[in-house]
């Protein structure tokens, strides 16, 4: 899995591509935590290139979302589609997050 973070407007867009499994999920968590430690309070995760997300991936996403929520920050998912979206839907996790079709839509909503 590849994780890349870019600062755009007032948010950090974290792009994840490939498979977010037990090995890769901690890498995502560390990358996001590094941005949060730098004081960033708005995170958008671009998942349009994500092919697979296991329970460890979901756990990492939930942990980062909770950390941001607790500090009054904002966490959003963008480009969630295909089988990965289905995993979120069946697990009942979609209502937990702000979900946008594209990164642009999420940035536009950042206010």
């Amino acid at each position: 899995m590849k994780v890349e973070g870019t600062k755009k407007d007032n948010a950090v867009v974290v792009t994840v591509t490939g498979r977010m499994d037990a090995v890769a999920a901690p890498q995502f968590e560390r990358a996001c935590a590094a941005w949060l430690d730098q004081g960033e309070r708005s995170l958008i995760v671009d998942m349009s290139g994500l092919e697979y997300c296991s329970s460890m991936g979901l756990r990492s996403i939930l942990i980062i979302a909770k950390r941001l929520q607790a500090s009054g920050g904002r966490f959003a998912l963008a480009g969630l589609g295909g089988p990965v979206r289905e995993v979120f839907r069946i697990a009942g996790l979609l209502p937990v997050f702000s979900v946008f079709e594209t990164v642009e839509a999420a940035l536009g909503n950042a206010g």
Partner: peptide, 22 residues
């Protein structure tokens, strides 16, 4: 899967409100 999703939520500290779909 839904039950395990609820557990993941609880573990992270999120609430699990009742869902009519369930």
């Amino acid at each position: 899967v839904r039950a395990k999703g609820d557990l993941l939520r609880r573990e992270a500290g999120f609430e699990s409100p009742p869902d009519p779909e369930v």
